[in-house]
Simulated scan of single mutants.
Amino acid sequence: MLSRVAESLFWMSRYFERAENTARFLDVNFNLLLDLNKITHVENPSYWVALILVTSDKERFNSLYDEYSAHTVTDYLVFNKNNPNSITSCIGLARENARSIIESISSEMWEQVNNLYHYLQSVTPQFVHNDPYGFYKEIKNASHLFQGITDNTFSHNEGWDFIQIAKYLERTDNIARLIDVKYHMLLSEAQSQPELVEGSEDIIQWMAVLKSCSALEAFRKVYLSKIDPDNILRFLILDRSFPRSINFSVCAAEDALWRISGSSRHRYVNNADRLIGKLEAKLSYTAIEDIFATGLHRYLEDLEQRLVKVGEQVHLTYFAYHTPEIESTDIEEALPFTGIAGGRPNWSQAQQHQQQQ
């Protein structure tokens, strides 16, 4: 497979997954505020700051908007084309990557990407504010439909494996960011308002964390007791059977990488396989007590850095137009994959091409 085709498949999948996750975060946040208004008067912008922190775009947001509110955050994360992580930008970049390899994907895949792109072009901010539930449901369903179409109309060869790698690396990154931001926001609120720790507001917010990962029902089937933060973190980070947990996603990305290279449990072929194997092994033998001993923020920060390194090595091994390095000595100088100032990975040929036009 040509590296150009593999790279476009990778980023098409990654941008689609990112758009879906952004839609899920916004949808859950709107519903969270509706629930909280029944219990307490909510005027705290911190509920909207969390969504910007998840995307590591606080500085860019502050340069464009004066306040954190439903209108400004929605505009930034849904419509703003200057934000490479907005839903409109992500679907546009996914479509651009799909268009560049239209002969390599199924016609049904292209139609789905194209339909969602044109749907977003027809939607207005007022429509989203009037019916946020309907809009975000449309984005999530479109993403699920695209994944189903891909699984059923695209040959399960190397190209399909690159799509899976991108999807699960992006999913892992989003879940880690969400847990980190939401956990510390809830923790700070519990310390400032201890009377709410066991109250309805605290339970609703923890349920929102689960809903953001579509994990509430699956969580309740495993943990029948009341909503407990330790069990939530154990489920979202370490569970091996739930498809949106960090452990499951890392294992799925590892399987796809190893199918391409031929690596095995006792023999790795390249650095990408070695790094994903180390990450999988670490998750397999980690207990929630180990995470708390390290510190949740520190643990998740280390996890995100490991994911960046895996992504860099995937690029150097399969996409770079030069002989890949065995081990990068300087991450920031190795390639522009990590984004600006350690932000979310957003590099792609399609994006560079668009910026040049």
Rank of each mutant, 00 (worst) to 15 (best):
F30W: 09
V49P: 00
K58N: 08
F30H: 14
L53H: 12
E67T: 15
A94E: 02
L33T: 11
T40H: 04
R95Y: 13
D35H: 08
P45R: 08
D57S: 15
R95Q: 12
N62K: 13
L33P: 13
R60Y: 05
A94W: 02
T72Y: 05
N80G: 03
K58T: 15
E96M: 12
L32A: 12
D57Q: 15
E59G: 00
L93I: 13
L36G: 04
L36T: 08
K38S: 11
V54W: 00
S86E: 08
N31Q: 15
N62Q: 11
I87F: 02
T88I: 01
V78D: 03
I91K: 07
D57M: 14
T55R: 10
L93S: 12
I52Y: 07
P45W: 09
T74A: 10
A98V: 04
F79H: 01
Y68G: 09
Y47L: 09
F30C: 08
E59Y: 12
V42P: 06
H41W: 01
A98I: 00
N82F: 09
I39N: 09
S86H: 09
Y47W: 14
H71F: 10
V54L: 11
I52E: 06
L33N: 14
L93Y: 15
Y68M: 11
I87G: 02
I39Q: 10
S56P: 00
H41T: 15
N62I: 06
N83M: 09
T72I: 02
